[in-house]
Design a protein around this nucleic acid. Structure first.
Lengths: 343, 343
DNA sequence: TTGAAAGCGCTAACAT
DNA sequence: ATGTTAGCGCTTTCAA
C-alpha cells in the first residue's frame, strides 16, 4: 500500500517486494546484477502498485533531463502554419519515438543571450538541442555552448560553430537544377523570388540561381525577396511583375511562396506555364495538388530531421560525429514549368 | 566561484552574496520578506554567476512540473499536416505564453491504460492536460483521473467525465446552418461527407445535417464518412457520386475534406457551384484560397484553445470552473455554394 | 547479489 | 528579515 494520495515511490515498491530501494532501482534501470527471483517480485510489485518513476527525482541525480529541445526562432503562428516545419517536426518526432527522449518545442523570438529562450537552454531542462530556422543574428547557440549543451543545426549556420555539427541540403545545387530546367524550356528571362537574406537557405538558393544564370550568359537582376510565407510570395511576385514585366520564368525559393506567386501571375493574366514557367522548392504535399501542379526541387526534410536526431544522439553519447552532413536535392517536373506547346 | 564544471547552484549564489540559501530562494521566488539590500546583493550574484534554477530539484520538492500536456491521440504525421491541429496548438501556445508553463506535446495512439501515453501521464511530468481529438474508445483520461491530474477536454467527450470540463463548439448548429444555406440555394438533394463516427464532432455535425434535412422534408440517406483527411474526403466524394449521382449539394464536415471533394467533383465534370453547392466546416486559411472559394462554417479554434487553457489553469488553481463551455459557430458565404445564376 | 547511506538542488517549515 | 534544517524520490558508491 502506498502512502495515501500520492503516487507510489521506489520505497513503496521496495516494501511491497520485500527488497531494498537499490534493488528496485536496478530492476527499473535494467541493471543485470539482480537475481531472477528478486526481479520477478519487483516487477510484480511495480505492476501491482502502478509505479512510474518520478522523472524529477531521477533527473536531479543523473543530471539528465531525458528530453531534447527543438528550437525554432519563429513565432508559433508561423511554425504551425508552414508545412516545412510540420515536416521537420514530424521527422524529428518520428526519429525520437524509438528513444525514451521527449521532444520539447521551443519557439519564439531569439534573444541576446538573456531572454526566455536562453534561460530555458541554461536551466538544464534538456540534454541537447536541435536548432532550426537559424537567422544570421541569432546567437543563443552561444548560451548552449557556454552551458555545454550538445547542439545540432538543422540547416547550415552562417558561421559554422566548432563542435556543433549541421545538417544541410544542397540548396545552391537545387536552385541550379531549377534554373537549368527553366533554361531547357527555352526561358531566357528568368526571375527569382528569393528567401530572406538573413537565412542561409535563402542566400544559398539565390546564389545557385545566380550562378546558373550567369553561366548561361543571362542577366541575374530580376530578384525579389519573400519571407517564405504566402503573403511574402504574393508581394514579391507583384514586385517582380512591376519591375520585370518581360519575365518568362521564375524560380521561387519555397513552394508556399511559389503557389502564391502562381495565383498572382494568373490574376495578372499570365498563364502558368504557357507565359511563365514556375519552379518551386521543397516539394511539400500541396505542390502536387496545386493548379497547375508545381514543378519543384525535392527538399528531403524527413531525412534531414532523422539525420539531425542521429547526430544529436551521437553527440550526447560522446561519439565522434561528422561536422556536417549534406543531403542532395532533385528536380520533380510537373505542369507549372512546361508550356503546353512543348509537351 | 562555482564548483568547477557544473552549473552554479543556489548555494553558490548564497556564498557569493553572503546570505543563506533560503534568502536566495526567496529572492528567486519573489517572496516579499527580503530586505532591499539583501535582494540587491543576491540579484547581483545571480547575474554574476549566470545562475538559473534547476527545475528538477524544484519540481521534486514543489511537486509541480511547470508544464502541461497536450494530448493528441493521432499519429504525428496527421497532427503536423492538419491545419486544425495547427490552429489548436497555436492557440494553446499563445495562451500559455503569458504563463511560465511549458507545453508538452504528447501524440501517438491511445492505449488501454498501460502504454507510453498512460505511463507518461502517470509519471508526474505535467501539472495538467488538455485532451483533444478524443475518440470514443480512448480511455487514458482514466489514467489521468486516477493520478488526480487536472484535465480539460478540447471537444466534448462521448461521455462527460465529472470534474473534467470540456470546451466544445456547437457542431450540430453549425451543420444546420450549412444545410439551411444550401436549402436557400434551392438545393434539394443534399449529401454529406461526415467525419468519423467515433468522434463527437463527426457525430454532431452529421446529426445537425440530418435534423435540418428532415425538418425540410428531404431525404437524409446520402451519407459517406471520411476521416478528416484529404484522401478520406476524396474517397467519400467518389462514393457519394457513385451512390447518389443526383446530388446537388454537399455539406462536408471539414474544410480539408471539402477542398478535396471539390477537386473530385470537378474531375467528374460537375461544376462547383453551378451543378453542386459545397459547404465545408472549420474555415481554415485555405478555405478562402480554394478554387472556388469555399463557403464554410467558422470553427473558433483559437478561442476554444484559449478557453481550454483558461479552464485548465483554473482547475490547477483549485478554482470552481464551469463543467462545459460551448462556443457558437457562424456561416461564411463564399463562391462554392452559390450558383452563378443566383449571384 | 544485495543493502545502507550519502547526496543531487531546491523549497518550506520552523526558529531566531 | 534571515538562517537552520529536514526532506522531495531517486541513483550510486561502498560494504557486506
Amino acid at each position: 500500500m502506498s502512502k495515501r494520495g500520492s503516487a507510489p515511490t521506489l520505497e513503496d515498491v521496495a516494501a511491497e517486494a520485500g527488497v531494498s530501494r537499490a534493488t528496485v532501482s536496478r530492476v527499473v534501470n535494467a541493471d543485470p546484477r539482480v537475481s531472477e527471483s528478486a526481479r520477478e517480485r519487483v516487477l510484480a510489485a511495480i505492476d501491482e502498485l502502478g509505479y512510474a518513476p518520478n522523472r524529477a527525482a531521477r533527473s536531479l541525480v543523473t543530471r539528465q533531463a531525458d528530453s531534447i529541445a527543438v528550437v525554432i526562432p519563429e513565432t508559433d503562428a508561423r511554425v504551425f502554419s508552414d508545412p516545412f516545419f510540420a515536416g521537420t517536426l514530424h521527422g524529428i518526432a518520428t526519429a525520437l519515438s524509438r528513444t525514451e527522449l521527449q521532444m520539447i518545442l521551443v519557439m519564439g523570438q531569439p534573444d541576446d543571450g538573456d531572454g526566455r529562450l536562453s534561460k530555458y537552454l541554461r536551466g538544464g531542462h534538456t540534454d541537447g538541442a536541435i536548432i532550426t530556422s537559424h537567422h544570421r543574428r541569432d546567437e543563443f547557440w552561444r548560451t548552449a555552448q557556454a552551458a555545454g549543451l550538445p547542439v545540432v543545426f538543422l540547416g547550415r549556420p552562417f558561421a559554422p560553430v566548432p563542435g556543433m555539427p549541421y545538417i544541410d541540403v544542397d540548396n545552391a545545387h537545387g536552385a541550379a537544377l531549377a534554373v537549368r530546367h527553366l533554361l531547357e524550356q527555352r526561358r531566357t528571362r528568368i526571375a527569382t523570388i528569393a528567401g530572406p537574406v538573413d537565412m542561409v537557405a535563402g542566400a544559398d538558393r539565390l546564389a545557385g540561381w545566380r550562378g546558373e544564370l550567369r553561366g548561361a550568359g543571362l542577366r541575374d537582376d530580376a530578384v525579389a525577396h519573400g519571407d517564405f510565407t504566402a503573403a511574402g510570395g504574393r508581394a514579391a511576385m507583384e514586385a517582380l511583375l512591376a519591375s520585370h514585366p518581360d519575365l518568362d520564368g521564375v524560380f521561387v525559393a519555397s513552394d508556399v511562396m511559389a503557389v502564391a506567386a502562381m495565383e498572382v501571375l494568373s490574376a495578372h493574366g499570365r498563364s502558368v506555364p504557357d507565359d511563365v514557367s514556375v519552379v518551386g522548392f521543397d516539394n511539400i504535399d500541396t505542390a502536387a495538388e496545386a493548379t497547375p501542379a508545381l514543378t519543384t526541387i525535392v527538399n528531403p526534410i524527413a531525412a534531414m530531421a532523422r539525420q539531425a536526431v542521429g547526430l544529436l544522439l551521437g553527440l550526447m553519447n560522446g561519439d565522434v560525429v561528422p561536422a556536417a552532413v549534406t543531403l542532395s536535392t532533385e528536380l520533380v517536373v510537373r505542369d507549372s514549368s512546361i508550356p503546353t506547346s512543348r509537351r
